[in-house]
Amino acid sequence: MIIQPHPYHLVEPSPWPLGASFALLTTTFSGVMSFHGVANAGLFLTLGVIGTLTTMGLWWRDCIAEGTFQGHHTKPVQRGLSLGIILFIVSEVFFFLSIFWAFFDSALAPTVELGCAWPPAGIEPIYPFELPLLNTILLLSSGASVTWSHHALIAGDRKGSILGLVVTLIFALIFTGIQAYEYYQAGFTISDGAFGTCFFFSTGFHGAHVIIGSIFLTVALFRLMNYHLTNHHHVGYEGAILYWQT
């Protein structure tokens, strides 16, 4: 085996950057057209979303092949991948910062249009110490169980690691189910002024974050069960955990 003189991964030509560009253009373009009620935009939006998801799946499948089966992910490459995940999560943190900003801007000094009150006049908010409290407990517990799974993996305890991750995913599914029920039962909608907008903007994107995190953890579970992950090389799982904890 001829060894290259540097540890970096020079990637092979791949169709996925181009595929992702076309799929994302179709998704955003037809998404906007769909909001404006243009004919057949929904069909193109569906095609765009299918194309985006397919490209994501095939691209990351290639990454797994390169890392796990071809050994391209040396220590410096792993550092680069981790840095990419961290920067992505930082960008998401600032996105959520702007969501909180919108909420505090409306809630801390309610304008006269809101009846100088928060929740605004006529809005019946969801009581936070019933199902929302249960959901908070579920998410905090899932943070504990995913840490259990991660530490079990590092300690070489395969059963514990798989069990911890399955428990985490069960918590995640119950959380998403309860949130769907809450959305169904809510006495206001996203178009009910600043309160409805802030509520569905924040909980909606948090819900999306939870669903994406659940998929990310499911991929890690699949790779854990198929012996992809070693006790000290599991960047994908660490990324999923970091995403889950934020």
């Binding site: 060894i3 290259q4 540890p7 089966f69 071809q70 050994g71 391209h72 992910h73 040396t74 993996l153 070489g156 305890d157 395969r158 059963k159 690691s161 012996y227 992950l229 070693t230 006790n231 000290h232 090389h233």
Partner: peptide, 14 residues
Amino acid sequence: GAVPTDVDQATGLE
């Protein structure tokens, strides 16, 4: 049934 180590199954340049 065991968690692999890097010595067990790292391949290629890694």
